[in-house]
Simulated scan of single mutants.
Amino acid sequence: MTGKQFTSVWLREPRKATSPGRSRYEIVKAAVELLDEEGLAGLSMRKLGAKLSAGATSLYWYVANKDELLELAYDEVWGEMALPGHEEAGWREAASVLAYSMRRAMLRHPWTADLIGRLPALGPNALQLADRMRKMFETAGFTGLDIDFANAALTAYVYGMTIPEIAWNTSTAGHAYDPDEMREAVSKAAAQFPDLLERIDMQRYEDPQTLRAMAFDFGLVSVLDGLERRLAT
């Protein structure tokens, strides 16, 4: 029995623009804009063709299907993630800058949360970043599989903190609840847990974004502390 054949837009040479057709860069840029505006459900070849004032069939010169278009758009987002030179900044500072950059890129493009683990990240931007991350942890002193495990620990932390935030921000619930009613509901739900209720500072619900940023910072420092501790031992 043979498995499903693996395909990717990155496994073939990109086709040159057809005159007076659009370039692949223009198509990908428009696709990212459409995804930012309407999400994954709002992306279609027909809508993209209308946005570019081009027929949907002309887009198939560059991509075979919607998944290939998503691969191209996905790699554009990877290109927005910054990783400073770890030789000068030090691996902890470089890893911190990268983590914040990944979080910002995902929040700017919330549709990416649904593509993680679903589409292969084989584009040049994603592969370049992955290679630089590997070198960063290697320079820090990690060896063998620990390089990959350190890499996975950092990215998993960013994904784990950011994906639920995106889910809340993009859901109807995230915009519909009245803050006062929500505080009252939380207090009522936790009434049987006085110790827990005492720890809930309801005023912080007024600025959940600040609270999330503080939580992200706390967790990131803890992850980096843990990685540094492993190096020391």
Rank of each mutant, 00 (worst) to 15 (best):
M1Y: 05
W10D: 06
L11I: 03
R12W: 01
A17D: 02
T18D: 14
S19P: 08
R24C: 06
E26M: 02
A30R: 07
V32D: 00
V32T: 02
E37N: 08
G39I: 01
L40V: 02
G42S: 00
S44K: 00
R46F: 13
R46P: 01
G49Y: 04
S53M: 05
G55N: 14
T57W: 07
L59Q: 01
L59V: 05
Y60E: 01
V63N: 05
V63E: 09
A64D: 14
A64F: 14
D67A: 11
E68A: 03
E71F: 14
A73T: 03
Y74P: 03
Y74A: 05
D75G: 01
E80D: 11
P84W: 01
A94M: 09
A95R: 02
A95F: 08
V97A: 15
L107M: 13
T112L: 06
D114Y: 00
L115S: 11
R118C: 00
L122G: 07
G123W: 05
P124W: 12
P124Q: 05
N125Q: 13
L127N: 04
R132F: 12
K135S: 10
F137W: 07
F137I: 09
F137E: 07
E138I: 07
G141C: 10
T143R: 14
G144I: 00
D146F: 10
A153F: 03
A153C: 11
L154A: 05
A156I: 06
A156M: 09
Y157S: 07
V158I: 04
E165C: 01
A173I: 12
A173G: 11
A173V: 11
G174A: 01
H175C: 03
Y177C: 10
E181C: 08
M182F: 13
M182H: 07
E184Y: 07
K188F: 13
A189I: 09
A191S: 09
A191R: 11
Q192G: 09
F193S: 14
L197V: 06
L197N: 11
Q203P: 02
Y205P: 02
E206I: 09
D207I: 12
D207G: 01
P208R: 02
Q209H: 13
M214N: 10
F216V: 11
V221I: 06
V223Y: 04
D225G: 03
G226D: 08
L227I: 05
E228G: 13
E228A: 15
L231I: 04
T233W: 08
